[in-house]
Simulated assay, not measured.
Amino acid sequence: MMQAEQLELVQDWDKVFPRNERVEHCKVTFVNRYGITLAADLYKPKGAEGKLPAIAVSGPFGACKEQSSGLYAQEMAARGFLAIAFDPSFTGESGGEPRRMASPDINTEDFCAAIDYLSCRDDVDAERIGIIGICGWGGMAINAAALDPRIKATAAMTMYDMTRVTREGYFGSADNKEARDQQRAAWAAQRTAEYASGSYERAGGVVDPLPEDAPQFVKDYHAYYKTPRGYHERSGNSTDGWNVIGTVSFMNQPILSMAGEIDTPVLLVHGENAHSRYFSEGAFELLKGDNKELMIIPGANHVDLYDNYEAIPFDKLQSFFEEGM
């Protein structure tokens, strides 16, 4: 058994969504191949017996498992799956130091470690395990699916390719060497200053209060992360964000480079009016064969797929995983 760190886990129900009494819930931990202990909420249909199909869920980027990923996991459990929502390394209740760092490699590994854990549970059918990645973890999920054949089906919801947006800026607005050189220089100066001071500076979560000229998608983020709808004290987006140098390695480690070699089913779901829709469309073009599907939700914006039951196609997700794995 991998040696796990003893984590201080909150046992009270502290999610931003109501508890479903048809679903059993408990906290669990598992260890990734870097020795980081991850914390997860496990949801299971009440009274279920035998081996169940399972799903691991994470995201959005900068969120915690008490927010959107937990909502998805609980709902999928109500539909017959054993599901876990986990905090990625360095965030939420999971281990890893320093806090609030992100890594294309380690965060992809977090999904694979979730598969390790689920595969070894007596109540899971190890041949029927899938994953759901939300927002920035949609990209990580696709990368994990390209690496790990134990993942039998993958859904990416309102996905971001964090490496692409870091490298190119939104809508390609900074997709040139000069802009990237400026960013590299800023990060380099930040690293020197932080090493000298011995501490990391946070970049800040979702802007608050909102400036009058804030783009609509920033207003949408604020409406989720900064209001009772979705605020959580362990969420970086709700509080002080990632470290300023937390996403440095995203610049030159494109996570979708092997997406074309995924043979298992991939479902991409995005809102019609989401500013981020082009990430799913771009990922869809990278996927090959007849194992891919792009579903556009009419009238929905980016954060509607975080918690809006009228926008999230749970019936589709249920049939996708039932038939695909």
Rank of each mutant, 00 (worst) to 15 (best):
M258W: 09
M251E: 15
S257V: 11
S257N: 14
M251N: 06
D263Y: 08
Y278I: 07
V244F: 09
S276W: 10
G260K: 08
V269G: 01
F279V: 04
L268M: 06
L268E: 00
V269W: 00
A259H: 05
E261I: 12
D263F: 08
I255H: 01
Q253I: 07
D263I: 11
D263K: 15
P254C: 10
Y278S: 13
H275F: 15
N273L: 11
H275L: 09
E272C: 02
L267P: 04
Q253K: 13
A259I: 07
F279K: 05
L256G: 14
M251I: 10
M258V: 14
L268A: 01
F284Q: 05
D263S: 14
R277C: 03
A283P: 06
M258H: 13
F284Y: 15
D263W: 07
A283F: 06
P265C: 05
P254F: 08
A259V: 08
H275M: 10
A283C: 12
A283Y: 02
A274K: 00
Q253G: 00
L267F: 06
G271N: 00
V244E: 09
I245W: 07
F284N: 07
A283R: 02
M258A: 15
A259D: 06
S257C: 14
V266F: 08
T264S: 13
H270K: 03
E272V: 03
Q253V: 08
E261A: 12
F284T: 04
S276Y: 06
T247L: 15
V248S: 01
S249N: 15
E261V: 09
G282V: 02
V266T: 07
T247C: 14
G282P: 04
N252D: 14
I262K: 08
M251Y: 08
G260Q: 09
S257Y: 15
F279L: 07
N252W: 04
R277P: 00
T247F: 10
E281N: 04
V269N: 00
A259L: 13
R277V: 07
S276D: 13
V244G: 05
I245S: 09
H270T: 12
V266P: 03
N252L: 03
N273Q: 10
T264N: 10
N252G: 08
Y278L: 08
V269Y: 01
G282C: 04
Q253E: 14
R277D: 01
V244I: 14
P254M: 10
I262Q: 04
P265S: 06
P254V: 07
S276G: 02
N252C: 05
V248K: 04
N273I: 03
V266N: 05
S280L: 03
L268V: 01
I255G: 05
F279C: 10
I245L: 12
Y278W: 11
I262V: 12
A283T: 05
E281H: 04
V248C: 06
P265R: 04
A274T: 01
L256D: 12
H270N: 09
I262L: 11
E261S: 12
V244T: 14
